[in-house]
Write a protein that binds this DNA or RNA. Sequence first.
DNA 1: GCTTTGAGTTACTTATAGTAACCAACTTCA
DNA 2: TGAAGTTGGTTACTATAAGTAACTCAAAGC
Lengths: 140, 140
Amino acid sequence: MGVTITENQPVERRKKIAKILEEKANGLCPVHDFLIHFANKWSMLVVLNLGYAGSPRFNELKSRVSGISQRMLTVTLRSLEEDGLVTRQLYPEIPPRVEYQLTPLGKSLLDVMMGLGEWAAKHEAEIAKARKKFRSRHAD
Amino acid sequence: MGVTITENQPVERRKKIAKILEEKANGLCPVHDFLIHFANKWSMLVVLNLGYAGSPRFNELKSRVSGISQRMLTVTLRSLEEDGLVTRQLYPEIPPRVEYQLTPLGKSLLDVMMGLGEWAAKHEAEIAKARKKFRSRHAD
DNA sequence: GCTTTGAGTTACTTATAGTAACCAACTTCA
DNA sequence: TGAAGTTGGTTACTATAAGTAACTCAAAGC
């Protein structure tokens, strides 16, 4: 009843996260370092979409990830490839055919990302409500 | 053995995510809409740090979230407050005292974020290896 | 030859992140 | 008296990243 939600989190888990966040390998904690590359909407949406699309071709992926431009899809895919989350298979035909796929590492991240996607979908209305409230309070 | 990791994901779950990503309320899918606000390293790191810091004051949080500037912390906290993830408690003293705290909504997101943090820590070395490999292949 | 095709580039504009200096108003110390 | 320190910010500016639109390549089809 008066129990807060974080208390559902095992204390051990919270302690571990605290430790990770304080840890610094070559100047940055691993979470920070990863988020620098990955914490942007296109990377996340591309991983999420690759999760159920199999091994789509470039344009197929482009039409799935609604709103993304050709350039940003290229940039995002290169970055994911660099981090070892995605493979790029080029078939040297003309016009070219290129297929993208999650690596095992990418698939393991997908599991976590799906949680985030589900959270976003579940709490959509609550967030919208909060924004509305905030804006009416801060309107002048 | 030859089984890929995504196959560990129940098919039902993948289908649901696919549906969510295609869904469009006022032009955007809820995941996209949420990520526009939240998919940046500072928001994620602030939520993660608030997760174990209780209700820290502004400067306390600033020193925890390593590398964040005063301005970006302010901007990030306002955005989190707007989305209903964080509360801001101002005590009108001088010098001022302000305490930040995750809301229940913020705490529910924390659960998911901890998964992401743990993933990043676990796969740090693998990512570093992939980056090195990518760079040596693409060096000219 | 002119058009289409897929998977990108390139050049350019706009938005966001990052840096450094400044502020308010009260307390402490000299 | 008056200079310096305190906290939680702003403001003005620069650097980086995202977004937009036009262009490319090499072959196939008309």
